[in-house]
């Protein structure tokens, strides 16, 4: 429960977006997004399709470059380097190192089909971070155990249900020891009966104090796990505040209307 956790007023900022602008050609996807996420805070982002929620997450991980403003994760500006008063694009190598700050969980899991569950989890730490195999394996087994898949270590993704695949994907993200977890509609591609098992894992992560940004349509999850909820419309964050307050008494008409659609 968010209320059970220590107050985060004094804890430090992990993710900070400042006037972030992004467009694809003539399509303005992000029009000045400002956002601050503090250590061990859970922020849920809600909003209609096309609002730019995925794009925002992808920018935070520098899977997309931005056209204006800046994004900081911990104390690093993502993807760019401030020299004088200009932001210069970083080298691929430096970007790669920064990507370790964020762990990403995708709507369609994107597990590697030619590797087993355990290999999927170990691949990053062993081959990308060059950590010792033995250690990584032990840690990966623990992670799979934590997401309830201890019995599936040597199974391939195609033999797992959607919910199981998504839990492996969460373990894979955790294995990289990220400072913040980014979830992009992690349950949208799942059959209704397995949504719960994934949300339960996410709730546990929230309770143990992980910093998380979760794009979701699961209002119930937002109410239960989020410290704050943000609404995104047309490339802007139009409303942000404590979960209960925003979900129950939205101050914006658009938010209220959106919620009335989602909550049917």
């Amino acid at each position: 429960m968010p209320s059970d956790r220590a107050s985060k007023e004094e804890s430090r900022t992990v993710v900070e977006c400042h006037s972030v602008v992004k467009s694809f050609g003539s399509v303005h996807v992000l029009r000045s997004v400002d956002l601050e996420v503090r250590e061990s805070e859970v922020l849920c982002i809600l909003g209609p399709s096309g609002a730019g929620k995925s794009t925002l997450l992808r920018c935070i991980n520098h899977l997309e470059g931005i056209d204006g403003g800046w994004i900081k994760v911990t104390d690093q500006i993502i993807g760019y380097e401030l020299r004088g008063n200009k932001l210069h694009e970083l080298s691929e190598r430096a970007v790669r190192r920064q990507r370790g700050l964020c762990g990403m969980v995708f709507q369609h899991f994107n597990l590697f089909p030619h590797f087993t569950a355990l290999q999927n989890v170990m691949l990053g730490p062993v081959e990308i971070l060059k950590q010792p195999r033995g250690e990584v394996e032990a840690r990966s087994r623990l992670l799979l155990d934590r997401v309830g898949l201890a019995s599936k270590v040597s199974v391939y993704p195609s033999q797992l249900s959607g919910g199981q695949q998504q839990r492996v994907a969460i373990a894979r993200a955790l294995a990289m020891n990220p400072r913040v977890l980014l979830f992009d509609e992690p349950t949208s591609a799942l059959d209704p009966e397995v949504v719960g098992e994934v949300l339960r894992v996410m709730l546990e992560l929230a309770e143990e104090g992980r910093t998380m940004i979760v794009v979701t349509h699961e209002v119930g999850f937002a109410r239960e796990a989020a410290d704050r909820v943000a609404f995104m419309f047309d490339g802007r964050i139009t409303e942000i505040g404590p979960a209960r307050a925003v979900l129950e008494k939205p101050s914006e008409a658009r938010t209220a209307e959106f919620l009335s659609h989602v909550l049917v």
Binding site: L63, E92, R99, F106, H108, N110, L123
Partner: peptide, 18 residues
């Protein structure tokens, strides 16, 4: 190969060559 595969690898901090 679905582009999500590349994206997942990149998000782990992998290089394009890897």
């Amino acid at each position: 190969v679905p582009p999500g595969q590349t994206e997942a690898a990149l998000s782990l901090g992998a290089s394009h060559a890897w």
